[in-house]
């Protein structure tokens, strides 16, 4: 992937758990669209209303820790977030995000180097450029790139089952 894109940064700190990304009381709403207004509400109730499609999240350590609720990456993707860059990710969130085609990037140095509202230029698998600084980023393992490139796990399975 060498599709460079620009994105406005929303900044969050360490240990953003999935109860913050989407509280349990909204998990049974009928659709992910219905859940969107409540994303991040325990921490920043105003945030979901401000995020514009194409924006990105830059977080600290252990983003997505806690429950296995896949509504968390789904709602982040539904808000139009182009990618989440964190110092590190919790493993269930990591798998869920890839399976839903949400781009995650590990970049430990970025969090301290940016402020909310900064605009970054992201080239997946290569680099992030922001405030005149360049941060190198790694590509994901091949088996995960296969799922991402298929457009997520549902599409990969549909292909396996001869539907697409």
């Amino acid at each position: 992937m060498s599709n460079t894109f620009k994105a406005k940064i929303w900044k969050l700190n360490d240990d953003i758990d999935t109860d913050i990304v989407l509280p349990t009381e909204y998990l049974a709403l009928k659709s992910v669209e219905d859940m969107k207004p409540y994303a991040f509400s325990p921490l920043r109730p105003e945030l979901a209303g401000k995020i514009q499609p194409g924006d990105m999240i830059v977080a600290g350590k252990n983003f997505g820790c806690g429950s296995s609720r896949e509504q968390a990456p789904e709602v982040v993707k539904a808000l139009g977030i182009s990618c989440v860059v964190a110092e590190s990710f919790a493993r269930i969130f990591f798998r869920n995000a890839i399976n839903n085609g949400l781009l995650l990037i590990e970049c430990p140095a970025l969090h301290d180097a940016v402020s909310e509202g900064d605009v970054a230029e992201v080239t997946p698998g290569e680099k992030i450029v922001v405030n005149g600084q360049t941060f190198e980023i790694a590509s994901l393992p091949e088996n995960l790139m296969d799922i991402l490139n298929a457009g997520g796990l549902v599409k990969a399975m549909r292909k396996r089952n001869g539907l697409d």
Partner: peptide
């Protein structure tokens, strides 16, 4: 270990 519902579906 825990996984999401899409992965469980597969």
């Amino acid at each position: 270990t825990g996984i999401g519902y899409t992965e469980m579906a597969s």
